[in-house]
């Protein structure tokens, strides 16, 4: 084997080993949906359409948040075959907060803590089968959490 060829081969293998997983990861993260400043664009980029209001999505949030930097949210979907749960804060600089995908026996349930820039509706969208469902709850924010 020629030395030149060998070096090419090795560098190629290195490039593949490092770049391939990075690309795979970058492809998973929905950049367009997360970076947009408009709630409607975030939903469009998540391919959410024709969402129906549903009381079967249970959202637990405080009525008032002292500090918008840490607002605990619990979401539970009682809609059969729930596949994904998306959390959006209407008045945040970038509304899409998180998108959770459940599989292999994970319950459609999640608790996390989010940032809220100001008093706003917190909107949850659930995908079940090929349908979308939504529910929302408003939170009064006393101190900005994005500063």
């Amino acid at each position: 084997m020629q030395r030149r060829y060998f070096i090419k081969l090795i560098s190629g293998a290195f490039a593949l080993a490092f770049i391939a997983p990075m690309n795979a990861f970058a492809a998973i993260w929905n950049k367009a949906a997360f970076e947009t400043t408009k709630l409607s664009d975030a939903e469009k980029n998540l391919e959410i359409n024709d969402e129906k209001p549903s009381e079967e999505i249970l959202i637990t949030l405080p009525d008032k948040a002292e500090n918008g930097a840490i607002v605990q949210i619990e979401v539970k979907s009682n809609i059969p075959n729930t596949e994904t749960i998306s959390i959006l804060v209407e008045k945040n600089p970038t509304p899409l907060i998180a998108h959770f995908k459940f599989s292999n026996g994970a319950e459609p349930f999640v608790v996390t803590r989010i940032k809220m820039a100001e008093t706003s509706d917190v909107k949850v969208v659930v995908k079940a089968g090929n349908q979308y469902f939504t529910n929302a709850k408003s939170v009064v924010v006393l101190e900005n959490g994005c500063g």
Binding site: F34, I70, S103, G105, A106, E107, R113
Partner: peptide, 30 residues
């Protein structure tokens, strides 16, 4: 998140998750 190597949860996050992220999820069948 995986359970015995099988994917159970895949979450994409933006900048709106609080510092030092906290997460709870539930699994049936574990």
């Amino acid at each position: 998140a995986t359970l015995n190597g099988k994917t159970v949860l895949e979450a994409q996050w933006g900048t709106g998750i609080s510092k030092n992220p906290y997460l709870t999820f539930r699994l049936t069948g574990a």
